[in-house]
């Protein structure tokens, strides 16, 4: 049997009270032995009064059937709520980010769509124009290059024709 000192027994009773059932399991036996002594019973007396007071406080009412049914129904509600949550995530974001909210207003959506479409068409057109602008000088130069030899050859033909006519005269 392990014995404990008065000081330790007093500390245990001051923390856990006078009921042996509440004492730490590993010290319960030695505490019970000490409690049987006169010193022990004096220490217990002070704690018994507070324990009796604590026991006067009525125990909470057990869970009602209605409450238990509510708890049992929670899985279905949580499942339903999680699907709604996914759907409303965008809705929540709308209110958290004002700019997004403005963009996502039903009325604004068509306007934004029109603006986007216009910007897209303009972008494509401008891009196309830039492509033409970039191509034109090259094409013109190419055309000139193509025309010049032709013009020259035409001139040569004319000059040749004139020379032949002079010889014949």
């Amino acid at each position: 049997m392990r014995t404990i000192e008065r000081k330790i027994f007093k500390e245990i009773v001051e923390a856990y009270g006078a009921k042996a059932a509440h004492w730490p399991a590993d010290m319960r036996d030695s505490c019970e032995d000490f409690a049987a002594s006169q010193e022990g019973s004096e220490i217990l007396r002070g704690a018994l009064a507070l324990d009796a007071s604590l026991d006067i406080v009525p125990a909470p009412t057990p869970a009602s059937q209605v409450f238990l049914a509510k708890l049992q129904a929670l899985p279905k509600q949580v499942k339903a709520a999680s699907s709604v949550t996914r759907a409303s995530l965008l809705e929540k974001l709308r209110w958290r980010i004002p700019e997004l909210n403005n963009w996502l207003r039903p009325g604004a959506l068509s306007a934004q769509g029109t603006a986007l479409a216009t910007a897209l068409v303009l972008g494509v057109w401008v891009g196309g124009q830039e492509a033409v602008a970039e191509q034109t000088p090259f094409d013109e130069e190419l055309a000139l290059l193509e025309l010049t030899p032709q013009a020259d050859s035409n001139l040569d033909d004319l000059l040749l024709d004139e020379a032949l006519e002079e010889k014949q005269q």
Partner: peptide, 8 residues
């Protein structure tokens, strides 16, 4: 144990 003692 300290909380219990102070509480009591």
């Amino acid at each position: 144990e300290s909380l219990l003692t102070r509480g009591r």
